[in-house]
Simulated scan of single mutants.
Amino acid sequence: MKYVRLGSSSLEVSRICLGSMTWGLQNNQQDANEQLDYAQTQGINFLDTAELYAVPPSEDTYGKTETIIGNWLKANPSRRKEIVLASKIAGPGLSYIRDNSEINSKTIVEAVEASLKRLQTDYIDLYQLHWPNYTSPHFGKHWPNNVHYTSFNAEQQTEKMLDILQGLSHCMAAGKIRHCGLSNDTPWGINQYLRLSEQHNLPRMVSIQNEFSLLHTKDWPYLIENCVHEDIAYLPWSPLATGLLTGKYLNGNIPKGSRWTFMQRNGLFRDTPNTHKAVQAFVDLAKQHNLTPASLALGWVDQVNGVTSTIIGATSMKQLKENIHAFKAPLSEEIIKDIGEILQQHPSPF
């Protein structure tokens, strides 16, 4: 296993981050325990969760994933120091989470306390803002005019960002979180936080996790360039595009128990004719090179310059082992070249 520094922090994390959002809905405590135990044997020390999980989110499953992780930590107290534990505070949009409130200094303190109780730990290594208070170009909103920037009140949002940093600073001073990061944000968001941190001597964002895969490359080059030059760790989530890149949803198939059988908060916006054409091309390419489609997709994300650690997830041990195996050997230059040709033929398919 390769390890890299997490942005400007002192933390060393594995190139693979174990995601956990299915635990508490598609996976139970025993499943999670097995995944956690196996991941550690493979050298994975980076674990990502959120108060929102399990996913798809609901009031019934809110906090269940953190609770499952907390039970594992309680049963294995010596392992806490061996993992880099990341969690996230939910942004506005859900009535059952702090009455649909925005992220601010007060809600950060409340959310951190609640997460620590569920996780049964004294501190969280990386605490992230799950999505910003303002609408960002994620979850299918990345097409022109989906977000109206000219009507955006930047001064007001900057004031809110300062308040957020003050809440994070309070939690860090109390030893409850070690570092902070972003999720589903933009270059403007990154740079505003960096500027405010420097001006007011407040905690510095060390990472950002955004959706990134063969089907969704919009963060390259500008956001990733920003991350590299500002020493922000870039953490791709959904590198298999919610399972699309395994090929299991081709030809109208929706396997029983798969993620697409559950109600999606933002709908199946990735399910487009162009998406399936692209997936078929990648599946065919993988077959030509005697690779699984998942290995092709994960291997490609891993080799993108500027990627720090890729967040993977699985609902079965078979999937988890295959996903981890994808990082064992780098893709050949020939395969990378062939992938590049397909990317040019099928850019931004959803």
Rank of each mutant, 00 (worst) to 15 (best):
I89R: 02
L126W: 08
G43M: 06
K318H: 15
E225P: 00
G340F: 04
L343F: 00
K106G: 00
A90P: 10
A286N: 06
R15W: 04
N184D: 11
L94S: 02
A32I: 05
D48L: 06
S295F: 07
Q280S: 13
D271M: 07
P347M: 02
G299F: 00
I342W: 08
W260I: 00
D125G: 10
P347T: 06
L119M: 09
W131K: 10
H148V: 15
H179T: 13
H276Y: 15
E51G: 01
Q192S: 07
P57T: 11
D163G: 06
A174H: 01
P236Y: 09
S14Y: 09
Y234C: 10
K64V: 08
S309F: 01
F152W: 15
F350A: 11
P77Y: 07
R265Y: 15
L94K: 05
G313K: 05
T150M: 13
I342S: 10
D31I: 02
T41R: 14
T158N: 02
S9K: 09
S213H: 01
I97M: 12
E113Q: 14
W143F: 14
N226C: 14
L126C: 03
L343T: 03
G306S: 04
G24I: 03
M1L: 11
Y149A: 14
V304W: 07
Q209G: 12
N210M: 12
L162Y: 04
T272C: 00
D60L: 14
S309M: 07
N290R: 12
K318N: 13
D338M: 09
D37T: 09
K248A: 05
V301H: 04
I312M: 09
T310M: 00
D231P: 02
P349S: 08
I335M: 12
R79V: 15
D284L: 11
K176N: 08
H179M: 03
Q166S: 11
T150D: 15
E12H: 13
G299P: 03
A281P: 04
A111L: 03
G252D: 11
L85F: 03
N33A: 03
N71Q: 15
G257K: 04
I103F: 06
A54D: 00
N146G: 08
R15G: 08
R98M: 10
L296T: 07
V13L: 03
